[in-house]
Design a protein around this nucleic acid. Structure first.
Lengths: 118, 118
DNA sequence: AAAACATTTCGTATATTTGCGAAATAACAA
DNA sequence: TTGTTATTTCGCAAATATACGAAATGTTTT
């Protein structure tokens, strides 16, 4: 019959958050913001990241779009911080997704299929 | 001074795993393999996913490259299953990354900067 | 040997991502 | 008003990702 299912909301959300996390610059920003637990200026970030201002701005936009950060305008600065609500949601989604299964896996790794790229 | 740091191994690994998880098809496959705790044929997967065989093969290759699945050749089939070792590693990385910070965040959300895309 | 089967690779097309510098925006300072 | 500062948007180029069908691969069955 080949039902060709649509993806659940959960699957789509995990993919969406993962996309936001799929670049080292964005992981770095989130790690910093979540751990320091305070806000951060775009200008401070550009000092320590190997990208230009406009590129950083694009990454911040991406993170805003994903809902993982939010900004407070404080002219002429913009302070960024973690969006705690969605950060929690991401945490729950990933935790549940990556949870161990209850039972042990059956043996399934005698031949390790090559995994080269290209 | 602008040190332009290089990214830590941890940051790069999180970005790498996230990239593997950044497509609904791949999230679906991993969810299925990790929960059912057994192996799965490519032919079984293509029945329930809205992509063609060659596209599915690309996604499986991507997951193999990221180390999240492994395949056992069982001609003319290939059985896929979770790579438990790396799955555990991903779990640890994401859990630590998404962990709550110890203290409460300072208020930082009076103006919610618009987050439209394009 | 030839046919059947599951899967991958190849070639190609299109879309998205990433990056930069220049210009635009917006608020404040002189 | 003019200039300064912080940030974003625009326009563009290059790289990567996604998707498909056709052809190739490798194994088993006939």
């Amino acid at each position: 019959m080949s039902d060709k299912l649509e993806f659940t909301h959960e699957v789509q959300k995990i993919a969406g958050f993962s996309k936001a996390l799929s670049h080292p610059v964005r992981v770095y920003i989130l790690k910093k913001l979540s751990k320091m637990n305070t806000c951060c200026y775009s200008g401070d970030l550009v000092e320590e990241l190997p990208v230009g201002r406009s590129t950083l701005s694009q990454h911040l936009k991406e993170l805003k779009y994903a809902g993982l950060i939010q900004g407070e305008i404080n002219p002429p600065y913009i302070k960024y911080c973690i969006n705690r609500k969605n950060w929690e949601e991401a945490k729950k989604l990933f935790t549940s997704f990556l949870e161990d299964s209850e039972t042990e896996p059956e043996i399934c790794e005698i031949h390790d299929v090559s995994s080269h790229r290209k």
